[in-house]
Design a protein around this nucleic acid. Structure first.
Length: 718
DNA sequence: TAGGCTGGCGTTTTT
DNA sequence: CGCCAGCCTA
């Protein structure tokens, strides 16, 4: 491959970015502007034209999925190995670093990763142990606090208590939590980053080694970096490394979990000679969709400023539908989905996006009723499922006996007669000895400090784990996992659970064995450790049904980075989107608007916006007006669509309330038999709304059940 | 120790 | 309204 191939097909701005010689570059990449393409081609350029060795390159992403995709696109483009290149998430790379330098990092060699669920359990225990007021110190609040401190790079000892008793207690628990992690060799997600940062501060020779090694660092989704991630990057980059960060301030939607949009501004201060390149040409959407997106985001103050444009088609106007209620909204969406299928659009080319997960239920129900296949993104990840966590906990304990989180999780799962009482005694002893629960158990049995029954139950448990430990050394990973899941009794335990749930859990456990079978280790001698790390750091692809044709359902947050020919943005209402919480808190509205911008720019060809005039929300009837974001879209970009006819009218016309005949006041009532000119005779099952918005559900004798707009259906009572 | 009941709570999500 | 955690009872 020569130089021209690498730059071929790129626009001038993309070429500038790919071939730039400046030491630091900030690429402001608008939605759909070929950001990943630029990153991948940049790496190709470095290797092919600049003869940079892959081992001198580091590429950082936020998700494992993005890392995986980047790696595969690089090897696809270059047709040779990317071996030696560090491509991964911030957490993944930090973890790799700590594994290499565990001793300098002050860790034990076999340290394990504590995920947020385990973290919460540990905190609950600490709250009880320290007898805190459970109303003021909820586990969630403390977890939030600790993670926030770590994301800001602060340890308990660094925090100023400002003489505030509440803060004092929080710091105390933070510090107790640090001790507990120390004892059981646990490192949580924030800790990975914090410790990786600290190791460079503490050990300049290690830092220097990596600074010499990584001559080129590339960062994706830079607007999502938090304080510690940016500090880590800055240290690593030093003043010799070439650093390219790619991001979009308009797509920063994770401020609420610590992402600092300011890092983008800060970047050009910290690296004064930074070359700023804007990618504004969009290859995804029609110009009308871009016009709408640009108009919405223009309302945000303090933007770095970008304007997306396309030389493609103007496209069709956006459609706005005002549903009477959320069921009506869902009905409209599914009706449109089916009609697009009629024009040769696949289901999988259509996505329904919403602000919060609670909205999905009504849409799902309508999809099911219509027999339309769908797939929900998000939800619980594979390795977060209860049964999987149980299975993995057995493997973890077999790998390291001092893993208290794993120990607590499975000591009585399935139940084996070791109750709370016994566990409590174990905890007290462990605390006295400053030892693991495992050692405490051994000690208490040896000293006959437990009742006969408890003692023998506990001994059986310990024996089982020791046997698993031996099995881990004698068997392949998949043989081991099969053995553990079988002998632990988890299959029976979960299989007994009521209904489909139990069945699904057994299937998931089988899937866990399957995952170990397919797992490929970098170092075969360390395969168990590597698998356990993956289980903690990687969500586990939900590959089921990925290839079947189905409508895609997801939140706006999970839609970031994806694109669909047809997008339905549901629930564009005040209080829902922008969300009530964000309206009330100052400064949060801008992020909601960016979320809206993300949503609009997912659509390639058609964009539908829908809302409900009345919505049942937490059991209450709520009446929200259309979202302010919709009103920020120029009215000539939008058509308001009415069901069952094609009359479009401008948004500003508002609703007429009195002209047409009504549902309840027109002689129609539930159970009434009626005649329709096309569908024939039927009986009224349901009436919703009044006046021009009334919808009537009629079960026709021959045509089945249909929802009709009363004002157009012209139903005649029989 | 399982299972039933109640009360509290209820954006967004990755690692 | 619906879910889940945690508590209480058989």
């Amino acid at each position: 491959m020569d130089v021209s191939t690498i730059l071929e097909g790129l626009n001038p701005a993309q070429r500038d970015a790919v071939s730039c010689d400046e030491q630091s570059m900030l690429v402001l990449a608008g939605a759909g502007s070929g950001k990943t393409r630029v990153l991948v081609h940049r790496i190709a350029w470095l290797m092919q034209v600049k003869s940079v060795s892959p081992s001198n390159i580091m590429a950082v992403t936020f998700t494992n999925k993005a890392a995986k995709e980047m790696r595969s696109r690089i090897s696809g483009l270059l047709q040779f190995e990317t071996k030696g290149m560090w491509v991964g998430t911030f957490h993944g790379l930090a973890h790799r670093l700590l594994k290499s330098h565990w001793n300098d990092a002050g860790l034990s060699e076999n340290f394990q990763i504590l995920d947020s669920d385990d973290q919460l359990r540990v905190l609950k225990r600490l709250i009880k142990e320290h007898q805190l007021d459970e109303n003021r110190f909820t586990p969630k609040a403390i977890q939030w606090y600790i993670n926030e401190q770590k994301d800001e790079g602060r340890r308990a000892k660094h925090i100023d208590d400002r003489n505030d008793p509440y803060e004092k207690t929080l710091i105390k628990i933070y510090s107790e939590y640090e001790k507990s992690c120390e004892r059981s060799s646990h490192v949580d997600f924030g800790e990975l980053l914090l410790r990786a940062h600290e190791i460079w501060l503490k050990k300049p020779d290690i830092l220097e080694h990596y600074q010499d090694r990584f001559k080129y660092i590339l960062v994706d989704e830079f607007q999502d970096t938090n304080t510690i991630q940016y500090a880590w990057l800055r240290l690593l980059a030093g003043n010799k490394t070439s650093l390219m960060v790619v991001g979009d301030d308009d797509q920063s939607i994770y401020g609420w979990r610590g992402a600092k949009i300011e890092n983008i501004q800060q970047f050009s201060n910290d690296f004064p000679s930074t070359e700023i390149i804007k990618l504004e040409q969009n290859y995804r959407s029609t110009s009308l969709i871009l016009e709408a997106a640009n108009a919405v985001i223009a309302n945000n103050p303090g933007r770095l400023g970008k304007n997306l444009w396309t030389d493609g088609e103007r496209g069709k106007p956006l459609c706005l539908y005002a549903g009477f209620n959320e069921q009506d909204e869902a009905r409209f969406i599914i009706e449109r989905i089916k009609s697009h299928v009629g024009d040769d659009t696949l289901l999988s080319e259509q996505a329904v996006l919403y602000r919060s997960n609670a909205q999905s239920r009504v849409i799902e129900e309508e999809l099911i009723r219509n027999g339309v296949a769908y797939r929900i993104y998000g939800g619980q990840r594979f390795y977060d499922r209860l049964e999987i966590k149980n299975g993995v906990a057995y493997m973890r304990l077999a790998y390291a006996r001092n893993d208290d989180a794993a120990f607590e999780r499975i000591i009585n799962t399935p139940s084996r007669g070791i109750g709370h009482k016994t566990v409590e005694i174990l905890r007290i002893r462990a605390k006295e000895d400053n030892s693991s629960l495992w050692s405490a158990a051994e000690a208490l049995i040896a000293e006959s400090k437990l009742t006969r029954r408890a003692s023998s139950a506990l001994q059986n448990f310990l024996d089982m784990i020791l046997q698993f430990c031996a099995a881990s050394k004698n068997l392949d990973l998949d043989g081991f996992s099969e053995h553990v899941i079988d002998k632990s009794g988890l299959i029976d335990f979960h299989g007994k659970e009521a209904g489909e749930k139990g069945l699904a859990r057994v299937e998931n456990l089988q899937e866990l064995i399957n995952a170990t079978r397919q797992f490929e280790a970098e170092d075969e001698n360390n395969i168990l450790r590597e698998f356990l790390d993956t289980a903690a750091l990687d969500a586990g692809e939900q590959q089921a049904d990925e290839h079947s044709d189905a409508v895609q359902l997801m939140t706006l947050h999970s839609a970031k980075g994806l694109e669909f020919p047809i997008v339905y943005l549901a629930g564009v209402e005040e209080n829902l989107f922008p969300h009530k919480m964000s309206i009330e808190e100052p400064g949060r509205l801008e992020e909601e608007r960016r979320l809206c911008y993300v949503g609009i720019t997912r659509a390639k060809l058609h964009l539908y916006l829908t809302y409900a005039e009345m919505r049942r929300w937490y059991g209450q009837e709520t009446y929200n007006s259309v979202s302010r974001f919709v009103r920020e879209i120029p009215s000539d970009c939008i058509n308001e669509v009415r069901i069952n006819n094609n009359v479009s009218r401008p948004l500003s016309a508002g609703f007429s309330n009195s002209t047409l005949n009504e549902g309840s006041g027109s002689g129609l009532h539930l159970g009434q038999r009626v005649n329709h000119a096309i569908f024939g005779d039927g009986v009224i099952l349901n009436i919703e709304g009044q006046d021009s918005n009334a919808r009537v559900q009629v079960n026709f004798d021959n045509a089945g059940s249909k929802w009709l707009v009363a004002s157009f259906a012209n139903l005649k009572p029989i």
